[in-house]
């Protein structure tokens, strides 16, 4: 069962991209979330916000044209884009907490069935980076998590209760993993879509939290 193919990181990103409405202001975290910008459906315009103090981030700079004063929050070099604007950190986070960011796509270590998010520290390391994640968890209008369904040891990252230190409580709206699309509802995590070839029961078997499973669960369509 576990040898069935799971979704590639790019496919997870593609599925998340479908969630971004036209004209949305979006912050993408590091990792799978960064890939999302490659897959925004044609005809939609999404405006990216970076905690480094840039709005309307466009493509990355070519090699040899890197400018140390033009980076995104992941430290990647950006190309100058028309309509780009710059601001300092207090304003960058004022935008986030002030409710001006429509969607934040974040990676995660654990998501609970209440929508709690843990993504900043592995307890075994004893130290971690909060960075901008707590502000995004508290301030973005909608949080979408993009992550693998299980960790390297095969343990479920979709849990009843987070055992790792929290980034935010009850903040996640949608979880897209390499096995499923899960919606946080008052009744718990609802299984909305499954990866092609997977049954709801097989996804549940990989999930610590108890999923709410509707009668018909379609396959993830892109």
């Amino acid at each position: 069962m576990t040898t069935k193919p799971r979704l590639e990181r790019e496919v997870i990103a593609m599925r998340v991209a479908r969630e971004l409405p036209d004209g949305a202001y979006v912050n993408l975290g590091i990792g799978i979330p960064t890939l999302v910008s490659n897959y925004v459906p044609e005809g939609r315009v999404v405006i990216y916000h970076s905690e480094s103090g840039v709005l309307n981030c466009g493509p990355l700079a070519e090699e040899g044209e890197e400018d140390i004063d033009l980076i995104n929050a992941g430290g990647q070099f950006l190309k100058k884009a028309p309509g780009m604007s710059f601001f300092h950190s207090a304003d960058a986070f004022g935008m986030i907490r002030g409710g001006h960011i429509d969607v934040a796509v974040l990676g995660a270590l654990q998501v609970s069935e209440q929508g709690d998010l843990a993504n900043w520290m592995l307890p075994s390391r004893g130290i971690g980076n909060i960075g901008g994640a707590m502000d995004l968890a508290a301030g973005a209008k909608r949080i979408i998590v993009a992550m693998e369904h299980t960790d390297r040891d095969g343990k479920s990252k979709v849990v009843r209760r987070c055992t790792y230190p929290l980034t935010g409580r009850r903040c996640v709206d949608l979880v897209v993993t390499d096995l499923a699309v899960l919606k946080v509802t008052p009744a718990g995590l609802e299984l909305r879509e499954v990866a092609p070839g997977w049954t709801p029961a097989e996804v549940q078997a990989q999930t610590e939290a108890t999923l709410v499973i509707p009668r018909d669960v379609p396959e993830i369509a892109l």
């Binding site: 905690e51 950190s89 960058a92 986030i96 909060i130 960075g131 502000d135």
Partner: peptide
């Protein structure tokens, strides 16, 4: 020693 602060809180505490 470390005092760990969320990034936006850090910026706002300075402001």
């Amino acid at each position: 020693e470390l005092e760990l602060v969320p990034q936006g809180t850090l910026a706002e505490r300075i402001r």
